[in-house]
Computed example of a mutant assay.
Amino acid sequence: MAVTGFYGTRFLALGISALIAVAAFGWPRLLRVYRRKVSTVIIAASGALSVVAVGLGRGEPYLRYAVAAAAGAVLLSLSAELFFPSPPGRAVTSVTGMMSGAFVAVSAGAWVAANRTPGAADLVVAGAAAIAVAGVAAAFTRRPTVNGIIALVLGTATGAGLGHLFDSISWAGGALVGIVGAASVVTVTELATREPAPRHALAAIASGITPVLAAGVLVYLSGRLLVG
């Protein structure tokens, strides 16, 4: 993420699309959706539509173009249940599972929107780097509380350090993006510990990718607050 963001919006969009494609295969298993192949197509299509719409949209705020992808995700999820019904008693679970996965994929378009915002490209790099560091720190020890504290501290420090290096943002702005990104990692990691361990590798990968994709909205909002 940090590397693709450094090379520009096009490479960032390709990197985000690759993460969405990989995660789309694991989310149905992670969310225990009945029609896995259908769910994979819906999640991948929703995320791709969001990235393309935000990447090609004209005029700020760029994130507004993701609204069409969100609406499409809802319609596709409901239509899938009509044409590919789940067993009795699992319809609501399947629809909500597909929608939640699709919305996370749609929210990933916010990374592209943030990168396209004038003056906010460095925030994307700082946020992605902070998330990467926090993700590693979240597995330092066997004590979740200690890991969470370490992840927040190192994520904030990473953002602040990059903010000090970049001319377009201050160290305080970098620290804000860093702690926001680290908080998303810590939150999702804590929620994951309350669920049974994924039995499939793709489900585990999707669980790890989720905070990266979802944090795009937080980085975008931080960019709007700091850059305007």
Rank of each mutant, 00 (worst) to 15 (best):
G174K: 00
L162G: 01
G127C: 05
T4F: 14
N115G: 00
A134G: 06
R32D: 07
A138Q: 10
G223F: 15
V153L: 13
A114C: 11
A175F: 09
I149P: 03
A80Y: 07
L14D: 01
S39R: 05
G57K: 11
S86D: 15
V185D: 09
T96G: 00
V104E: 03
L82M: 11
I43H: 01
N147G: 05
V185R: 10
G89T: 01
P85D: 07
G57N: 08
P85V: 13
L82S: 04
V52C: 02
S94H: 04
A215S: 12
A204M: 06
S77Q: 02
L63R: 02
L63G: 00
P196N: 06
L225G: 00
V33F: 07
L221Y: 07
R10Y: 07
V51K: 14
A108W: 10
V92Y: 03
A69G: 01
R90I: 00
G89D: 13
P196E: 01
V219W: 07
S170R: 07
T189N: 05
K37D: 14
H164L: 13
H200F: 13
W111K: 10
Y65Q: 02
L226N: 03
A114S: 06
E81S: 08
G216K: 12
V22R: 08
A102R: 06
Y34P: 00
D122S: 11
V133P: 00
A105M: 08
P118C: 08
A182R: 04
A105F: 09
D167I: 00
V217Y: 15
A214E: 06
A215C: 09
G148K: 14
L225Q: 04
T93L: 12
G119N: 05
R224Q: 13
L82Y: 13
R224A: 11
